[in-house]
Structures are given as C-alpha cells and as structure tokens.
Amino acid sequence: MFSFCTDPATLPDWQWWACYLTTGKHLAFYASFGTVLLLLALAAPAALALGLVGALAARSPNPLLAWPGKLYTSMVRGVPDIIFFLFVPLALDQLFEIVRHKIKCPDWGQPIWQGNDFVVCPAAKLPLSSAPQWVHEVYGFTLALIAFAIVFGAFAANTLKGAMDAVPKGQIEAAEAYGFSRGQIIRRILLPQMWIYALPGLGNLWQILIKATPLLFLLGVEDVVYWAKELGASKTSAFAYPHPDWRLWYFLALLVWYLGLTKISEAVFARLNARVSRGIVTVNGGNGA
C-alpha cells in the first residue's frame, strides 16, 4: 500500500501498523463489511416483499391461498432459523441441479442419488466447474440471500399480518360501503394504513436481521467472520507480518461494529416512528404496539 512497506521486519511501530492494516487481505476484510451491508440492503426489501405476499395470502378468504400463507407464517415459530439457513441453500442448490440435469442430460441413465453421493451430469453443475472464481462467489452469496429472504419473509409476514389485523374495522367497512372491490380495499385502505402499525415490529425485525448476518459464514461466504478468523490466527515468522493469536481483537472489532450498527438503526427507527406517528392516534398514544 505504502512505499515504505517493502520490508516490514525493519519498520518502526507506526509504519508497521500502517502497512499491516493495509495488506491485501485486510482490504478484503474491509470489503467484507460491504458484503454484509449488501446482504442487508438486498435481503430487507426481498423479505418485505415475501412477507407482504405471505400476509395477504394468509388473510385471504380463499383456502388455497390461506393455507400455504399460514404454513409459511408459522414455519419459523417452532423451528430454529439456523436450520433453515443450513437447509435452504443446500436444498435449492440440489433442486436447481436436478432440474438442469433433467433438461440438459435427458439420456444420463444413472440415478442422481447413488448411495451416499449426489451425482448430476457435468453440464448441469451449478456453477459450471469451468466457471471463474467470482461466479462461484456470486452464486454462493445469492443462495444465502434467498435463504435470508425466505426466513425473514416469514417473520415479516407475521408482523405485517398483525399490522393488517390492527387497521380499524370501520375503515374497511366504510370502503365496502362505498363499493370498493377487495383489491381496491387492499391497495387504497389496508396497505397505506398498516405501515404505522407495522413499523415497530419491522424495526425489531431489522435489528434481528443485522444480528443474523454473521451466519453468512456458515453458508461458506467469505464474510467478516471468515476474515476475522483468517487474519487473527497466529502467523509464524514465515509470514511478512508475524504475530501471535489476535483473533480476540478481531472479534472484539466485529462486536463493536455490530453494536454500532444496531445502535444507529435503533435511533433511525425511533425517529422514523415518531415521524409517521404524527397526527395518528393509536392505543399507545402514537408509539405503536
């Protein structure tokens, strides 16, 4: 990074630190914070969209919609989310490969599950074994993102369903009296009014989403936890920057970063809540549920 970094062993203290903290691996470590923020930025709207669909389906008078909706909203209640995080990416990966296998290699002839092996034809592999490294990384990240969206979609569906139920009945009845159709009621009355009731729950959910992001590590994504372990591990003198086991300090840095992130979002949601609550009377005097 700096011109004086050519021989780290001879450097004085502050220069050694300046060089150490700007090695290529450290830059990758800093970039991985971006990966976490990117996951948050993509998973939140995806989960919200899935949650909206789930909540509307669960409230639908049509049992063909209501049953899957209710199943979706209740699936996260009894089962630890970590199970979903481990299961969904693996299951999706296999499903994608089976579908591609059926399309691309119809004459393969061998069973896909052979004893303890899962074998699809090379052309059906995802990503292809010839694909460059970044494709593998993007694919892994996308699977993780889908898992986050599904799990947090279920949580958001719970929150949004509660918020929709909290919209005063009189509003819906008035719309019906004016001859609004079901779709019109949802679009013009239900959705605009439910946000105020949903916001505290969604704020809570956002905090939980932040605190779930280290699980990216379990899904094989090179996230902040991966780099903290990697960089903190003790380095012998074979390395350019030898040091003892520093993982404690790297994890301390992660701890502080996460504390800051949750603290900031708490403040943002408090302001947001105060803003949307203006002029609206709720049971708790404007603070929502």
Binding site: R247, L252, L254, L255, Y258, L259
Partner: peptide
C-alpha cells in the same frame, strides 16, 4: 443489556471462545 442485546450471539460465542483460550 446493551452489550448482549446489541450484538449477534454468534459473534459473542467466537469472542468468548478466544477469550477463554487466552
């Protein structure tokens, strides 16, 4: 309360383990 509710349990596990090792 802030320390344990504001940070991920997963990171707390990693941090505590490294602390105990040292």
């Amino acid at each position: 309360i802030f320390l344990f509710r504001g940070s991920p349990l997963f990171i707390q596990f990693f941090f505590a383990y490294e602390l105990f090792v040292l």
